[in-house]
Design a protein around this nucleic acid. Structure first.
Lengths: 174, 174
DNA sequence: TATGAACATGTAAATAAATACATGTTTTTG
DNA sequence: CAAAAACATGTATTTATTTACATGTTCATA
């Protein structure tokens, strides 16, 4: 997909925590969320405008100093609805951006049963994937021989397996 | 970046191994490379056309059955040059797509000193990143308290740390 | 109190990527 | 041998993302 509007969900999730400016939202991608998703301010400001037109969010103005008026955005009921719907949908395993992690970031302690369902679902999907990767390893690199002539391929597959294994171990700690 | 033309390097890397059709190239993203990068055939066919115009690749025709004529693409010297130059450049840590892994995939046994340099470089960058993540953990979640009220944030950071640790361990095995 | 860093908000242009549209051939298999 | 699956190659449209352009304010600090 051209990434099914996931940035919109991130914005909603962040505004669901607290009111923020476009600048605040942009900064969120420098730390936490930046580990799993990226966005520029030039993507965020137009998106905020669009989302406000669609009544998902609104803004109030905050006076700073003598001249500057910040726009602080707030989530509205329509926004809350589509955000919560997104949380309940299954997450795609995408190998680049990680949708599950995003949802996890926004899960709060009020939804333990949703968290449990999400983790179980992801655990199942990731286990299937690991199984598939192990099968590939058995098929493509059964002996030392090909591991040397196609060393790059072997390393990459080994890393994919290592990554999935680590992911699954981490899932089990949630 | 709008991903600095990395798809072009992947195509060059694959054609550097052997002559392939657009369909073959597309399929490569279903397995191995698909673990770390994605592309659709609608991206690949126009790119092949463009790269041929730029003399990076050429094609020869292969008759299949009675009617079908496949186009099989071959890398040319200009293509080889820019591919090898890319291999030598430092790889960005991007948190979504993984450029280092891509390069590793294409490294062959003829370049052990380049491999060594690449791994050392990546090890250094990843270690710095892990250090930074650990610092964040110490700053944001010093005690059990905040780990519970911001459980999602905590999990995500923990996963980033786990991921980097696993990455570094894997790097050491190369 | 100057000055640089960080805050703050936008738009424009270019590139990258996904989805949908379109069409036809070859191979496998029931 | 019919049908389905896989092979094969494109284009068009929409969406997503990056880089660059553009401008101004506030805050910390030397």
């Amino acid at each position: 997909m051209a990434q099914k509007n996931r940035l919109q969900y991130i914005v909603l999730g962040l505004l669901n925590i607290e009111s923020r400016t476009g600048y605040d939202l942009t900064k969120a991608f420098d730390s936490d969320i930046g580990e799993f998703w990226s966005a520029n301010h030039s993507q965020i400001y137009p998106l905020l405008k669009k989302m406000e037109q669609e009544n998902l969010i609104s803004h109030h103005e905050v006076q700073v100093g003598t001249k500057l008026v910040k726009k602080s955005y707030d989530i509205m009921s329509d926004g809350k609805k589509i955000f919560n719907d997104w949380l309940e949908e299954p997450s795609e395993i995408d190998s680049s951006h990680d949708e599950f992690i995003l949802k996890l970031y926004f899960i709060d302690d009020k939804k333990p049963e949703l968290l449990e369902k999400m983790v179980a679902e992801q655990l199942s999907a990731r286990s299937d994937k690991l199984e598939h990767l192990n099968q590939q390893m058995r098929d493509k690199f059964p002996d030392q021989d090909k591991r040397q002539t196609q060393y790059g391929h072997y390393c990459v597959l080994k890393h994919a397996i290592s990554r999935e294994t680590d992911y699954i171990e981490w899932l089990k700690t949630i």
